[in-house]
Simulated scan of single mutants.
Amino acid sequence: MDNKQNKRETGIRKEELAAEFLTRQGVKILERNFRCRQGEIDLIGRDGRYLVFFEVKYRKTARNGMPAEAVGYVKQQRIRYTAQFYLYSRRYPEDMPCRFDVVSILGDQITWIRDAFC
């Protein structure tokens, strides 16, 4: 098995772990791995009145930085454009309250960063 496939399998497992964590926190997961030409969103869910677009980032150790630090400006913009397409394609109203959150997984520690794209 090559390294790219190993990373993808690890990503799938960590996204599942994040979804389970969020569900325990009261989030209703609506979609996983939404893809379109603009990009991909790991998880989409409802948290109260908010439609939330989640980016899940995992690092085994902090040696190369914290997981959330990997969600830079360019990645944030790609997620925003993908979210716009999602809202349009699913016919959500224009005034739908939305939020962009990051679920950071460092080793076994999960941190939920709400409204991460300020």
Rank of each mutant, 00 (worst) to 15 (best):
G26W: 03
F85M: 15
E16F: 00
I105G: 12
R49M: 09
L106A: 07
F117E: 15
A18F: 04
I41D: 05
R114S: 09
E69F: 00
A19L: 03
I113Q: 06
V52L: 04
R78P: 02
R37M: 03
R99P: 03
K60T: 05
R46A: 11
E40C: 02
R35P: 01
G45Q: 09
I29G: 08
Q109D: 14
R63K: 10
D101T: 03
A70T: 13
P97C: 08
A19W: 02
Y88R: 15
E20S: 09
P67R: 06
F117N: 14
T82F: 01
E31S: 12
E9Q: 13
Q38L: 08
Q25V: 00
K7T: 05
R37D: 10
E55Q: 14
K60D: 13
N64M: 03
K57Y: 06
D101H: 03
R59E: 11
R91N: 10
C118A: 10
E94I: 00
R49S: 13
I29F: 06
G107A: 13
R78C: 03
N3R: 13
Y88N: 15
E69G: 05
G107F: 07
M66I: 10
K7L: 02
C118D: 13
Q5D: 08
R80H: 11
A68N: 10
M66S: 11
R114L: 07
K75L: 03
Q77T: 05
G72P: 04
R49K: 12
D47V: 03
C98E: 14
A19Y: 01
I113H: 09
N3S: 12
Y86I: 11
Q38G: 11
G45A: 10
W112Y: 14
E20N: 13
D115L: 00
L51G: 15
L22C: 05
T61G: 02
C36N: 15
V27S: 03
Q109W: 04
F54M: 07
G65S: 12
Y92T: 03
Q76M: 14
I79P: 09
R99W: 02
T111Y: 00
D108F: 01
T10M: 14
T61N: 07
T82L: 07
R8L: 12
L17M: 10
F21S: 13
V52N: 08
G45R: 01
E40V: 09
N33F: 02
L51R: 15
D47A: 14
T111D: 04
R78K: 15
K28R: 10
R46Y: 01
L51I: 14
R80T: 06
R37A: 13
G72W: 02
A19V: 10
M1H: 01
